[in-house]
Design a protein around this nucleic acid. Sequence first.
DNA 1: CGTGTAAGGAATTCTGACACG
DNA 2: CGTGTAAGGAATTCTGACACG
Lengths: 74, 74
Amino acid sequence: MKNKVIQIGVVSELTGLSERQIRYYEDRKLVFPERSRGGVRKYSFEDIQIIMEIHSKMSNGFHTLELKRMMAGS
Amino acid sequence: MKNKVIQIGVVSELTGLSERQIRYYEDRKLVFPERSRGGVRKYSFEDIQIIMEIHSKMSNGFHTLELKRMMAGS
DNA sequence: CGTGTAAGGAATTCTGACACG
DNA sequence: CGTGTAAGGAATTCTGACACG
């Protein structure tokens, strides 16, 4: 489940989120995909879980910065 | 494990086989990846297991046609 | 039979920016 | 702040074919 093998297009399909949103979470240091030599992002199923949790909490009014604090404090 | 989400480049890395070999197994009806709208192959971890078994048995002298019979008879 | 490769095209992804608010 | 989008380039994948044997 921690194998980073899934590209962003599939993550987008599985989560229902846009690629823009998914990349933004990375920009905010909430998810950490690996990269292929060419620079293509690779996610794990665990990452997908995290991404869905992030989106869920944001729907509840949390900001990315708050979420980062929450993750650091866990 | 049966989620078809992995592209051929990653399968190639994980198995150590060439993309040519992996596509050939599909041509021989031994593996059945899904396709994205654009036609890109998507494999599951289970598919990767199967691919490695195919390669292993071929190293032991089996032909693809024989392997197909073996899989059908299981 | 199984696999390498060059060829040309198509799908996918990447980044930085502008926009809205 | 979080996300949509158009823009241009780059990485990845696809197919059909020729080659060897």
